[in-house]
């Protein structure tokens, strides 16, 4: 009984390790797989459009609303202590340090990650990847690599856009609507927000999330069971696992970056 249980746990662990191993080999292949600038660059640009530009709307709208809500909630608390002038740094810091990278990552996983998984899974199930292999064109280079780099390139930019629009949204509610002094809003924010500690660390977070989300999406698609429900499961897995990975990693990174 116990032996059987141990055995199955062991097998599960080995399976996992094998999976992670395959995933890293794939990532490795993708990372160093840009075939040539002449051929790779147009593919990369196209993926930037698909992965990045098409995610812009949802990122901007979400950023705006989250910034506005943040200002509204922050104001109701701060005003009791007469500290409503600190609304600027509060909105700025929470967006730059946490909400920008994290929410962008979550939205990116749902918007672009799931699409990547479904697209690649379907390419696999319709034998498009196999036929590419038989044409002596490595799908890791032709299909996976440009998508990986595009994801890595776009997500930090999207996070920066998210935070910027969020801060503008906070300004809109705090200054234009609730009547905080606009000069204070910006100047206190400026004095409290540190370029390296806050802005830079936020960008590092979003780079880490970009790697994780894009990698999970591509891996899940590439290894999907090539059937309708296999792809549907892979897509769900992408969103769930990428989101959990983001939240977990965010905690770890925050501990390293901001607790001293």
């Amino acid at each position: 009984m116990i032996l059987n249980m141990l055995q199955s746990i062991g097998a599960g662990v080995f399976d996992r390790i094998g999976g992670v191993g395959r995933a890293s080999i794939m990532l490795f292949g993708a990372l160093f797989g840009i075939p040539s600038i002449r051929k790779g660059f147009p593919l990369f640009v196209r993926q930037i459009y698909v992965v990045g530009v098409q995610s812009l709307t949802i990122i901007m709208v979400s950023g705006l609303f989250i910034g506005m809500v943040l200002a509204l909630q922050g104001y109701t608390v701060l005003v009791d202590y007469g500290a409503e002038d600190s609304l600027g740094p509060m909105v700025g810091l929470s967006l730059l340090r946490e909400l920008g990278p994290v929410v962008t990552g979550l939205l990116f996983a749902g918007r672009a990650g799931s699409a990547l998984t479904a697209e690649i899974g379907l390419m696999k199930s319709t034998e498009q990847l196999s036929s590419m292999e038989m044409m002596a064109i490595d799908p890791l280079r032709r299909v996976i690599a440009p998508r990986f780099w595009a994801g890595l390139f776009c997500m930090p930019l999207l996070a920066i856009i998210f935070s910027t629009i969020g801060i503008l949204g906070g300004h809109l509610v705090g200054v234009e609507w609730l009547g905080i002094d606009g000069g204070n809003f910006w100047s206190i924010m400026q004095s409290k927000v540190d370029l390296v500690d806050d802005v830079f660390n936020g960008v590092i977070k979003s780079i880490v999330f970009a790697i994780v989300v894009t990698w999970i999406s591509l891996y899940k698609g590439y290894n999907a069971v090539p059937t309708a429900d296999g792809i549907s499961k892979a897509t769900t897995d992408t969103v769930v696992q990428a989101s959990l990975a983001i939240l977990g990693l965010d905690f770890v990174l925050t501990v390293f970056m901001f607790s001293s």
């Binding site: 379907l122 390419m123 319709t126 034998e127 498009q128 196999s130 036929s131 590419m132 292999e133 038989m134 044409m135 002596a136 490595d138």
Partner: peptide, 18 residues
């Protein structure tokens, strides 16, 4: 991959790039 440049295969499903 080098050797495959000399071969080609018509897939049963066609497998055109959609």
């Amino acid at each position: 991959y080098q050797v495959r440049q000399d071969m080609s295969m018509l897939f049963q499903s066609g497998a055109l790039f959609t």
